[in-house]
Amino acid sequence: SEEELEEFAKEVLRRGITIIVNGIRITEVEIFVKVLREILEKR
């Protein structure tokens, strides 16, 4: 749901943790923004 997305976004921003994806360091915020864009483009 959109509320869950908002909560996830807030949690990500609070933690600001960097994770490893395919050997490249990407912040969770960047991943969230990318996923959010993909979701919005599909609408």
Rank of each mutant, 00 (worst) to 15 (best):
I39Y: 12
V21R: 04
R14C: 02
R14H: 04
F32C: 00
E41V: 07
G23W: 15
E3N: 12
I39H: 05
E2M: 14
L36N: 00
G16E: 04
E28C: 04
E38N: 09
R43Q: 08
R15A: 05
V29K: 02
N22R: 08
E38L: 14
K34T: 05
V21W: 15
E38C: 15
E6N: 08
E41T: 10
I20K: 06
V35M: 12
T27E: 05
I24N: 04
E4I: 12
L5T: 01
V33T: 03
V12M: 14
E2Y: 15
I20P: 00
I31C: 08
F8D: 01
T27V: 11
A9M: 11
R43L: 15
E7K: 12
R25L: 13
T27D: 06
V21P: 00
R15P: 02
I19V: 10
I19L: 08
T18H: 12
T27F: 09
E3A: 13
L40V: 03
E3T: 12
R37I: 07
E38D: 10
E6Y: 15
G16A: 10
E41S: 13
E30G: 09
L5M: 06
I24F: 10
I39L: 13
I24E: 06
F8L: 08
I31T: 09
S1N: 09
I26Q: 01
K42Q: 12
I20R: 06
R14G: 07
R14V: 02
L36H: 01
R14A: 09
G23E: 02
I19G: 00
T27G: 03
G16P: 03
F32Q: 00
R43G: 06
K34R: 11
G23N: 07
R37E: 01
G16N: 07
K10V: 08
I24W: 13
N22S: 04
E11M: 12
E28V: 06
E4F: 13
K42L: 11
V35E: 01
R15I: 03
G23V: 08
K10W: 09
L40E: 02
I31R: 05
E38F: 15
V21T: 03
I19R: 00
L13H: 01
A9I: 15
I26S: 04
R14P: 00
G16I: 15
E38M: 13
E6H: 13
L13T: 00
I39Q: 04
V35K: 04
L40N: 02
R25T: 09
E7T: 09
I31F: 09
A9P: 02
E41G: 12
R37W: 10
T18C: 10
S1I: 12
